[in-house]
Design a protein around this nucleic acid. Sequence first.
DNA 1: AACGCGGGGAA
DNA 2: TTCCCAGCGTT
Length: 378
Amino acid sequence: MYKEEMNVSGADLYSGLQKIFPDEKDLTLTERLEAARGPLLSWYQGNKRDLPWRENQDAYRIWISEIMLQQTRVEAVKPYFARFMECFPTVQALAECEEEELFKYWEGLGYYSRARNLKKAAKIIVSQYGGELPADHRALLALPGIGSYTAGAIGSIAFGLPVPAVDGNVMRVLSRVAGSYEDILKQAVKKKTEAAVEEVLKTLKKDEPGDFNQALIETGAIVCVPNGAPLCDLPCPFYTVCEARKRNLISAIPVKAPKKKRKIEEKTVLLVKYGDKIAIRKRDDTGLLASLYEFPNLEGKLSEKEVLERLGGGASVEEKLPEAKHIFSHVEWHMSGYLVKAGEEIPGMLFADRGELKEKYPIPNAFAAYRKLLESQS
DNA sequence: AACGCGGGGAA
DNA sequence: TTCCCAGCGTT
């Protein structure tokens, strides 16, 4: 209300508040981090979650977990991680696997380029580093699928390197600690934050960078939570140095630029039966759900007649299927569907039996509603 | 710097 | 509904 009435930006409001409280010392983020260093490390020892990839410091396990955890919640990752490590226990096993099989283990986890890059990187690790992940920040950063955050996480957790691992969690925590109104989605803001964390990492003992980075992340997961108010009354390692808490700005920070809205796409999904088999096809190798399999589908919401025109070849529609919706982050599929009986195998389509549908071909969850229909059908 | 890329849990 | 999650690669 004050903000809107005065028509001032968050930054202006903040500098205004600074003038109202001129006696407050304006600490830098680095100074706040240094002040919290001790409490943070001991808080982490007492509060860290017991997670499968924290059983040891094996770089391969750390790597796989960090890739899976990109934009993905811990609870979602746990079952995938267990199955993955069982099937691909070493870098070599991963480097030699079939991409199709790898996708099958990734099915439902999303952001499938992560899996593709994992295999690419595994081959490089085998050919250039003797099958061991390199204990070098720049070498890690050069591997496909490993960016600034992941290189920092692997480097510090597996190898003890003093490199920052700043993700969305850490940006949320530290923007509140600093009382900063800068947009945490901006890469320049993230870079500054990484620089501040790196300063402090340099002052740590040799075995502490991994714990320090994980402690920051853990604070974001346990105390300074996303979606709603942070739980400042739990023991918080930043309690005494947190500017947002001190000035009651926890609901205003972090600042994130609004996202643009999704577009909606209409689709008509076909479950085409030929004997006991069902038609699927492989998607294009670029773009959304690249290289995965799908039920044949047509653009737009088509009538029974329009479907038959496009199929030809003695196909007949057996029934109209219920509508389904799938929401991606940037697009929304509104699907209608038909159960179709094919008179012959249709060129360009692949006919799979129920077992192959379940065990062999990776089909993304966007088609889960129709897949389920199929299972209850038989 | 902006955009494309999954899926699901929670408010 | 909207938000946001242990982000990265491409343009």
